[in-house]
Simulated scan of single mutants.
Amino acid sequence: MNSLTPFSDQSGGERVSFHRQELAVILSLYGRMVAAGEWRDYGISALREVAVFSVFRRTAEHPLYRIEKRPKLRNRQGLYAVIGMDGQILKRGHDLRSVLKVLERKLIRVVE
Rank of each mutant, 00 (worst) to 15 (best):
I108P: 03
M85Y: 02
V55E: 07
L64N: 05
R105L: 11
F18V: 13
L47I: 10
E61F: 03
I67W: 13
A81C: 05
L79W: 13
G43F: 02
Y65W: 08
N2S: 14
L90V: 09
R70W: 01
R66N: 15
G93P: 04
K72T: 00
Y65T: 05
F7S: 13
S17C: 12
R76P: 03
F53E: 06
Y42V: 12
G84K: 03
A46E: 15
D95H: 03
A36K: 06
Q88M: 05
R109P: 04
D9L: 04
L29E: 02
E38R: 05
A36H: 03
V55S: 04
K91M: 00
E112Y: 02
I67N: 05
Y30H: 12
D9N: 10
N2F: 09
G84M: 03
S98D: 15
G93L: 08
F18H: 15
R57N: 03
V50G: 11
S17Q: 13
W39A: 12
Y42N: 14
E104K: 06
R109K: 14
W39L: 06
I67S: 11
F7C: 07
R40N: 09
S45C: 10
V55I: 14
E38M: 09
P63M: 01
V25T: 11
T59M: 03
L64R: 11
V82N: 12
A36D: 11
Y65N: 04
I67M: 12
Y65F: 10
Y42E: 00
E112N: 12
G78V: 05
K91N: 11
R105K: 10
E68L: 13
P6Q: 03
R48K: 08
K106C: 00
R97G: 12
M85W: 02
R48Y: 04
E14T: 12
R105W: 01
V55W: 00
L107D: 02
A35K: 11
Y80F: 15
H62N: 05
L100T: 01
K69A: 09
H94V: 07
Q77C: 00
V110D: 08
L29F: 02
E61K: 13
V55R: 06
A51Q: 14
E112Q: 09
K72M: 03
Q10E: 15
L29H: 00
M85C: 02
F18T: 10
R15W: 03
G31E: 07
V34W: 01
Y65G: 04
H94C: 00
E68C: 15
L79V: 09
M33A: 12
S98R: 06
V16C: 02
K69E: 13
